[in-house]
Design a protein around this nucleic acid. Sequence first.
DNA 1: TAAAAAGGAATGAACGTTCATTCCTTTTTG
DNA 2: CAAAAAGGAATGAACGTTCATTCCTTTTTA
Lengths: 191, 191
Amino acid sequence: MKKQKKREDIIRTAMELIAKEGFHGAPMSMIAEKAGVGIGTIYRYFENRDVLIRTLYKEKDERMVAFLLENYPHGQPVRECFFHVCTGVIDYCILNPLDFKYSEQFHNSPYGVEYRRNRLFASASKPDIFTDLYERGIAQQVIRNQPPAVFFNLAFAPIIWTIRDHLLGFVDLDASLSRKLVQSCWDSVKI
Amino acid sequence: MKKQKKREDIIRTAMELIAKEGFHGAPMSMIAEKAGVGIGTIYRYFENRDVLIRTLYKEKDERMVAFLLENYPHGQPVRECFFHVCTGVIDYCILNPLDFKYSEQFHNSPYGVEYRRNRLFASASKPDIFTDLYERGIAQQVIRNQPPAVFFNLAFAPIIWTIRDHLLGFVDLDASLSRKLVQSCWDSVKI
DNA sequence: TAAAAAGGAATGAACGTTCATTCCTTTTTG
DNA sequence: CAAAAAGGAATGAACGTTCATTCCTTTTTA
């Protein structure tokens, strides 16, 4: 019990610090201090800094996927699923800004390149809702025939950038704008 | 003459190193070594590392804007200008991968946030081809009425992400795919 | 030859990681 | 049951590195 508590403290603090200050604004010493543990303690739970950073991402990913699977419209047309996933991503990120900001830090670093490479080239192994969307869309000829990476970029890049701008206070991404934005993304991938 | 030569050497080497290895893979000592100058020499041309990094970005930006203004279809419909700018960005980045990669490093760092904030709050002062595109599109009712940031994100985020994937070897962004991609982006912003 | 430019060793701050030690809980002993 | 021993989690000072920047010497220029 106590053991899990310390691990949680470290995870939460590291997440928050890296989300707010970036990888280089979150040295191990500061994570330890803010989490109220000794520096050495972090190394009892995580082999090294890399492992901590990857663990943080994995746990965030699991939380988001779980959120997206709530009320997932299984069996419905690709279009419904696309809207569910896109608005789900927006809602999750706005509800969990630290998760989003951490994600940005992660993807805009060598970790992100490695992650994308693994996803694209070792994709056959792990089926996920994003790939499923693409494959069904292509099979049913409701989305344009473009490489998967291009589909993902058209579908999600504007959304991710707009969430970023929302969290920076540059745009007010409310429910109304969210709908319009997802509609625009759909218009760019649909036949 | 000689003086400009050394400055150019430093600029080019720093650009290349940071583009390839990131900010943290490009210490001043390595820039100096690869540029064939002493460490101290860099500080004769640039007050400090920050100034060097910002100068690199500014010079890249000027080169790209100059490229986009070549054969710019002044007086043509918004749609033509949109296509010119979008394909121009793709062409420039693929022709100058180091400029693109450097740009990515810059934007995905605290420099990028500062840059975007300045653009948003001091936007009225500097007219540019991107803003012009948005304002004419809205005025003529050929693009959807959304905040400028959302327009830019829909128009450019998928393009930037796809250029990134192309340079990483994940996608082959040839002339054909480029056309399709820009068309998709246009479909997401047009009325 | 005086002034300007170039050079790179030296500096000190910051970092991730290690490890000898402390501290607390659990188990064993008498 | 009380006391002693063992076990192992937690700690943070210390280490070795890396880096931006400074400072003083050497070289080039005019």
